[in-house]
Amino acid sequence: MQKAVLSRKLSLLFLTPALVFVALFLVYPFFSIFQMSFTNRALVGANALNPQNVGLQNYMDLFDTQDWMRRGEMGHSLWLTAQFVIGSALIGQAGLGLGIAVAFHNRKGLLRELVFTLAIAAWIMPDVVVAFAWFAYLDPDGTLNQMLQAVGLRPQDWLFDYPLLSIILFNTWRGTAFSMLLFSSALASIPPSYVETADVIGARPWQKFRDILLPLLRGYIATDLILITLWTFNTFTPFLLTGGGPSYRSNIIAIYTYEVGLRFFQFGKASAIAVIVMLINLVLASIYLFISRSRQRQIA
């Protein structure tokens, strides 16, 4: 630990503007949500004027086991979200991002520039534009079906028959760039001598990846996974593509919260969902911190 340049008082002074923002726009809404989650506060109807304290009622309703897994209920939504996160964040974004980073490791040239530029373009384009692009892409008359027909495959009604797969592909496409960039930076920091030694002893590419690159990348993978898991868990953009349908089959938790809170205005219940989501995210983040800490201890 280096000696501090700033006294604690001064460093707090530098932090003040950030703390004001955090207090106003993160902490205040959070406590407001937390407190609201124990009431039957609605924005319309009688419960708007006289909200009552209902204790844990909202939470109990959400975990009502009888209808829990029915379409449009929370259990169903959480199950979809789990598939969505595993499919699009863990396998899709992290897997593909790692794949691209490894494939282009120590390579330069036009193809690398092209792939990187395309992936980054998908990442930085505005929400409404990418949603529309994919809406057109997956339409029964869209580009994807045109390509399938060109190679003799049967066209599909993607958004209707495979809504969850559609948003998983969409979110993979949308967010891979972050993992790709992160892993590229990480790989660039690995001394070339490590890999050369492996070449000398005649390691196979898979062995090289498994025994040399992967252990060195472990910490980065953990960082990457937790960030994209949190982002994917809370992303609302698929709403612009499917609206959560058809028939609730892409009704991930962010869309579910939106429906309860801003369509039916059952604000107490929506707040309870937000608190539950927060707790789930907290657990996921703790697992990450645990892995990350144990790695640091290993290295030390």
């Binding site: 609605a42 924005l43 319309v44 109807g45 009688a46 419960n47 708007a48 004027l49």
Partner: peptide, 8 residues
């Protein structure tokens, strides 16, 4: 109705 009941 729901707006009126909600005092809006």
């Amino acid at each position: 109705p729901e707006f009126v009941e909600g005092g809006l």
